[in-house]
Amino acid sequence: MNILITGLITGSMLALLAIGFSLIFGVARIVNIAHTAFYMVAAYCIYYLSVRVGLNPLLSMLTAVAAVTVLGLLVYKFLIDPIREHEGAVLIATIALAMVFQEVTLRLFTGDYRTVDFLITGFFTVGGVKVFYQQLLTFGVVLVTLGAVWFLLMKTRLGLAIRSMAEDREVANLMGMNESRLAMITLGISVALAGLTGAVLAPLTVLNPYMWMEPLIIMMAVVVLGGLGSIKGSFVAAFILGFTEALVVFLVPKGAFLKGSVALTIMILVLLIRPEGLFGVSFEEER
């Protein structure tokens, strides 16, 4: 039961992170190493606003997501966009960016562990396991968001353009889709999703300036397992990894430290056996 709950929550959050990461990779071929760093920034934003400033927690969350999105767009405009076609440079720039976020956070908030209060307190027990209302709330918000993202991608004109751009950007251009505008919008959505993940996770975890590294590795494993650029793949793989992680932590006594290595092992195995992942298309040259 515990595994189920942890697996579901971890899985759904990984899915949210991985989908955001996949989206911007698909549309603009940007490998955003700083993706989970945005998630950390959002979490700290909430901590600052709700604990230090004393703002209403819900308002803090909304502000945090908005702030992170704006931060993401600014970074894109001035740092990423000028070097967008240079994959190596983008990789290095986003690694540097994650480091900067980490160091700035370290400066501002020191390395001490921080916590954010639950939005709603209390719990109920199912099969002898405590389920906190906060866990339920987080899970609910994440599910609703996943649904909203799905709707956006599959049922709207913008979503169609994003998918077209991700599948064949040259042909998408031929249909009149504006590449740089779509890249900008997609980046906004992607970072907003990372921010939102940070926001709903903040009450369930302890904050520290290095909290972006572990999810980054696991998220990468999700993306590799699901197939780079495949939204459906990210979704399925996120739950597979979420449950694997919960299982390992549950079965191996004091196994929490193994989480990262399990993810890495899965990633390496997939790369060796089936590099295109579960749903990925094998890489075809664009011309």
Partner: peptide, 9 residues
């Protein structure tokens, strides 16, 4: 050239 439909759609 080569039709290039969006294959996943």
């Amino acid at each position: 050239e080569r039709r290039r439909p969006f294959r996943e759609m």
